[in-house]
Design a protein around this nucleic acid. Sequence first.
DNA 1: CCTTGATCTTCCAGTTGCTGGAAGCCCTAT
DNA 2: ATAGGGCTTCCAGCAACTGGAAGATCAAGG
Lengths: 135, 135
Amino acid sequence: MNIGQVARLSGLPAKTIRYYEDIGLIRPQRSENGYRSFRETDLHKLGFLGRARSLGFSIEDCRSLLELYGDEDRASADVKSIAQGHLHKIDAKIAELTAMRATLAHLIHCCAGDHRPDCPILADLAVSHDTGSGE
Amino acid sequence: MNIGQVARLSGLPAKTIRYYEDIGLIRPQRSENGYRSFRETDLHKLGFLGRARSLGFSIEDCRSLLELYGDEDRASADVKSIAQGHLHKIDAKIAELTAMRATLAHLIHCCAGDHRPDCPILADLAVSHDTGSGE
DNA sequence: CCTTGATCTTCCAGTTGCTGGAAGCCCTAT
DNA sequence: ATAGGGCTTCCAGCAACTGGAAGATCAAGG
């Protein structure tokens, strides 16, 4: 299979597939004309990568997961550990965004949003706050 | 004021302040020796930038907000519009992360996490799903 | 056989928002 | 004079691609 077909089947852009080869996630063979020649296992790995990435795993996590996937003697604890680490990062990010969202939504609510210049959003950004326990 | 003091007062790294000058967010004067010389207004702007960034506004949003902040004839609607656009992006991001989190937490819950190789996390990543209405 | 257009190749640059480091000048204190 | 800190510039790198240029290859049509 050439890269175009693999891109169609895997749903990944050809550019991304080349990039994954560059960084050593996959190692497709080459035809005599220099074209990449993908086997079923390559396609399978790309699907794996696409799904792992869509769950937000970093490329390095994906590399580890792919390695564990190919290791018959893996311990599921190693996989679980990676997933839990990622889950913690997601939770931290959600918490951060939720805090931003709350402040932002409040400011937006307070802003008339008309032709006048008075704006509580700008007023808030203009003064320093303490990060502490305000109500 | 030199950059070190401004960094201390604003809480922003000196590198970041230089970067903000590079991209034209601030325009500190220069002393005769070539050092940046910050006025109160520069410090104020840097505080504004720090707070806007901490709410997750992009640099380009910050540029617009700073411009509106300095424009006595602004309409608060313009500020509100930027903030609302940003809020939508945050909401989209939260939704994306929450969906990831749900899938990931489920998989983690299903994984024994012991010395054995059987792992529902890897099993899930290994097969293609439809994005549709599964339960 | 030749041309056209799609597909493939490599390589370089750009994205976002900084951050680290090198090389070198300036300033103060001893 | 020298040591140290702070300041300057510029270049590289992070994550994970993405876009584009320049050129080879292939399949189909006239």
